[in-house]
Write a protein that binds this DNA or RNA. Structure first.
Lengths: 155, 155
DNA sequence: AGTCTCAATTGGAAATTCCAACTCAGAATG
DNA sequence: CATTCTGAGTTGGAATTTCCAATTGAGACT
């Protein structure tokens, strides 16, 4: 049987994002980076992700500009690397909050949510909203996703 | 070699969402459902997704309550099924807009975005924002994702 | 009965993921 | 300098998922 036929590079930003983030473990690594984890062993232990996969994902995320690799050295140890969210990585917070919002409403676990979104340093809940340029809040039904400049007959 | 060791059911809503949405093609099918596609052949032709995968994903999304299966019958054809977003499915719009926002900023294609977010029926751009209960907009740095009731030492 | 159509299935290959063990090389020690 | 320890990364191979191309099955029509 023929090998896989190549697919054109997607033009849709959603599709392009998914192509990076959709690989197994990738978004969970990003989530845990938000939880303050930076080291290989921290991600591996907290997630239970196989070493070869973790190694590969950290490389991919670094190459994509989502994480930045920094050298560190504990006393008595060799130099090692930690992985830190970049500006681009931090912007993924909206994606995580959107997934969490949807998950809380639709995939609730028995013990309630394991994570909550709060105004930093307070107990004030924070939600995601769609807003127009004046800052007015819009409902899901008041917003459409429409073809943009990169669209042709397929988008 | 042993078979795959079972992993505990995740308690984090982000993780639970990813477990459903993370399979290849799933979120793209949902995206295309937002574009108005409802029929098997529409998804298959627009996405180029293999038939067996599409069949399986539609079943999974239906079982998860994201899509609802409806019978229809063209003149001269047998009864077939179309797939429509449910309330739960429509709530995924925030996830798609979050991915699109991040993708536009970080994974831009050469031709510009293939899709845009607009106030329904207008050209008014719409963005995602984090807001407090009073409706005040918050920056990414003003918001934290913190442990919730479902968290233990691991979350 | 025969034909057409298309969602779903099938068999098998390619690719990805995972497991468990192992490697490699830098730091410390004697 | 040799040895030991350590942990990120690699390896080989199995399990699983994804994909391709062909095929099936069954409802509608003639």
């Amino acid at each position: 049987m023929a090998t896989r036929k190549p697919r054109p590079e997607p033009r849709c930003s959603i599709h392009r994002s998914i192509d990076l983030l959709g690989e197994r473990w990738t978004l969970l690594i990003v989530r845990n980076a938000f939880r303050g984890q930076t080291r290989f062993s921290e991600f591996r232990d907290a997630l239970g992700v196989p070493s070869d996969i973790l190694s590969a994902r950290l490389a991919t995320l670094t190459e994509a500009g989502v994480l930045e690799r920094r050298a560190y050295r504990d006393e008595g140890s060799r130099e090692r690397f930690s992985y830190h969210l970049t500006e681009s990585g931090r912007e993924l917070k909206l994606v995580l909050v959107a997934l969490q919002t949807w998950g809380d409403a639709n995939r609730q676990g028995a013990a309630g949510p394991a994570s909550l979104t709060r105004k930093a340093g307070t107990d004030t809940p924070v939600t995601l909203a769609l807003v127009d340029p004046e800052g007015a809040r819009l409902g899901l039904d008041e917003v459409d996703i429409v073809p943009g400049p990169g669209a042709t007959t397929s988008w």
